[in-house]
Design a binder for these strands. Structure first.
Length: 609
DNA sequence: TTTCGCAGCCAC
DNA sequence: AAACGTGGCTGCGAAA
């Protein structure tokens, strides 16, 4: 047994590192003490839990003064027994550890999820802001520094310094550092001690502000999302390999065209800008640092293309601009999607994207490694890579204009609530009220942009840029919109006034406190709408599991759920899922649109083979 | 050599 | 008076 000592917040703590089986007797004694709550953490070789190369190295247990760091290669049975004892577990960012323990030790999410407390969830409820947003942050280190001990070492960054001394990098260090390296063991042990103390500090705070109920909900949701992640989605590997090859060829062909105009690297914005200027093009827009902007909003018009890639016929296309946008798109799709899919798949050709259930400031969920919430939707080719399990079909149900409906409900605007109840197209309705009965397609487009502008907090200038309409008609459309839906303007003003003179935050119907930046109080409306829309989807996921439909779910995508079901039941299952998703929110119907896609996700976007 | 901020692009 | 919100990820090019 190796024993390390460390002072945490002025108190001496011990970190025990058993080296042989005889050392476990003391560990059993520690467990037999019967602490109600024990902190747990894992150290692994990397973040990609389901790739064949992923390994579990250490599992740590601890209280506020004592940690046990156990090697998974030597002591797996003891670790499993400890995890299965009937007591509460305390984990910082349990979304990750639940999956690790399930995959490597077979201790399932269902076994330990329901009795796990996650300090990251508690911290997010207290303040969801990251460090860069002016908050404490959601990592164990910044939270410990604030709530436990200002001297808390940064165990993650501290180790990267150690990695360098060993000739390792950030990428190779977690797998390569010797498993008994003193700093590695020490920091592994400190993490559970800090997590335990952090829980002791912020657990009561969450209770005091009346968020116990929301906390319970978020813990339950996280467990369900972990089950979705464990399930994963099936990848059509031959299709992805073929697609990747085609995309790379396309990227190379257009890169060769760009090279003829002096651009050796299409991803170098500096090279592209210089070459375009040399060709006599004007570049009026600039980036925050002052460089000429050459993004696709600039390049597509130079190539005589709309933002939807249709020919405008208003000028001679600039061949360089055309080649650059085409090469970059093909390369982005090849790398960010096709290649990422192949890198992250498990041994059974399934992808298990990480679902962050409580991610954004607004609690919106995120999906990463790979980013399945942001696959191209204007074209089916990338989504076609995901296929249903044998005998099943991909199905999906999305909320219809959920953010507009939430805004209508929260603001209580009678005109909009009635329009929704009557089932009319909201943007056409707005266009008619703003521009009269003879409104055009362009008028509807402006009305739609104004509606989104209200949700996002966008102003006349932004809407002008988006729609190409002139500033004056956009301004009058905004004024007419306010006159048509006075409740929405009133509601936004109320949120801002409260923040102006009271706490710089907005509180959602679920009781979530969302901090506002003092120079961006106008974001209040967006925050409460976005957050509430997320809460509705989260509630739907919980309800679907309660209704026995959880086994069908595959992925949440902000306002929709992707699922699968046996082919001959698919239509019925998705209708049922859609029904469970629907609700009445302050008198406004939150409606869903169920759809059977077919053999792949891409079949919902026009794929046929 | 590795890390990191910027620019850009994908989604809702 | 006006104010475009939330994420993930890749490549470049300079800093460390």
């Amino acid at each position: 047994m190796r024993t390390l000592t460390h002072v945490v917040a002025g108190q001496p703590c011990t970190i025990n590192f058993p080296e042989r089986h005889a050392d476990l007797i003391a560990f059993e004694t520690f467990l037999a003490r019967g602490d109600k709550v024990i902190a747990v953490d894992t150290e692994t070789t990397g973040l990609d839990v389901y790739t064949p190369r992923h390994r579990l190295r250490l599992v740590q247990f601890g209280t506020s003064t004592e940690a046990w760091v156990l090697r998974a290669d030597l002591f797996a049975p003891a670790i499993m027994r400890a995890l299965r004892q009937p007591r509460s577990l305390l984990v910082h960012n349990a979304a990750y550890d639940l999956l690790v323990l399930n995959r490597h030790l077979g201790v399932t999410i269902e076994e330990i999820g329901p009795r796990t407390f996650d300090t990251r969830i508690l911290a997010h409820l207290l303040d969801p802001r990251t460090e860069s947003e002016g908050g404490i942050g959601l990592g164990l280190k910044p939270l410990s520094a604030v709530y436990v001990d200002p001297e808390a070492p940064d165990t993650q960054n501290g180790l990267t310094a150690v990695f360098r001394g060993l000739g390792l990098t950030k990428a190779t260090g977690w797998a390569g550092i010797p498993i008994d390296h003193e700093t590695y063991v020490r920091y592994a042990g400190l993490d559970v001690i800090y997590a335990h103390r952090l829980f002791g500090e912020i657990g009561p705070m969450v209770r005091d502000i009346g968020l116990d109920h929301l906390s319970k909900f978020e813990h339950h949701l996280q467990t369900l999302l972990a089950i979705l992640q464990r399930r994963g989605m099936r990848l059509d590997v031959p299709y992805v390999q073929r697609l990747k090859g085609e995309l790379i060829t396309e990227a190379e062909q257009f890169a060769a065209v760009a090279a003829r105009y002096g651009v050796a690297n299409v991803n170098s914005t500096a090279q592209v800008a210089e070459a375009l200027l040399a060709m006599g093009e004007q570049l009026h827009e600039h980036t925050p640092s002052g460089a000429p902007k050459v993004d696709k909003n600039v390049l597509l018009p130079l190539a005589d293309l709309t933002l939807q890639w249709e020919r405008i016929e208003s000028r001679t296309p600039n061949p360089l601009a055309d080649a650059v946008v085409r090469s970059k798109r093909a390369q982005k799709w090849a790398e960010s999607y096709a290649q990422a899919f192949l890198d992250l798949k498990d041994a059974d050709d399934r992808l298990h994207p990480f679902i962050g259930g409580l991610q954004a400031r607004t609690a919106r969920m995120s999906v990463s490694r790979p980013p399945l919430q942001q696959l191209p939707s204007g074209d089916w080719t990338i989504r076609r890579a995901f296929i249903a399990d044998p005998g099943q079909a991909i199905i999906a149900a999305d909320y219809q204009a959920v953010e507009m409906r939430v805004l209508a409900a929260l603001s209580g605007d009678e005109t909009m609530i009635k329009a929704i109840a009557d089932g009319v197209d909201l943007h056409s309705f707005t266009a008619e009220r703003v521009f009269g009965p003879d409104f055009t397609k362009q008028h509807r487009k402006i009305a739609k942009a104004v509606g989104f502008g209200k949700v996002y907090g966008g102003g006349a200038a932004t809407i002008t840029r988006q729609t190409g309409a002139d500033l004056e008609s956009v301004k009058s459309a905004l004024a007419a919109y306010d006159a048509t839906f006075p409740g929405i303007k009133r509601y936004s003003r109320r949120l801002m006034n409260r923040a102006e003179y009271g706490r710089k935050e907005v509180v959602t119907p679920s009781g979530r406190h969302l901090p506002l930046d003092r120079d961006r109080l106008y974001a209040a409306t967006n925050y409460v709408v976005q957050s509430t829309s997320r809460d509705l989807l989260a509630q739907a996921i919980v309800d679907l599991f309660d209704a026995g439909l959880g086994e069908h779910l595959l992925l949440p995508v902000h306002d929709e759920l992707i699922a699968q079901a046996p082919r001959d039941e698919a239509a019925e299952v998705i209708r049922e899922i859609g029904r469970v998703m629907e609700s009445n929110f302050y008198g406004v119907r939150i409606a869903s649109d169920p759809e059977v896609y077919g053999p792949s996700w891409g079949h919902g976007y026009g794929a046929s083979a």
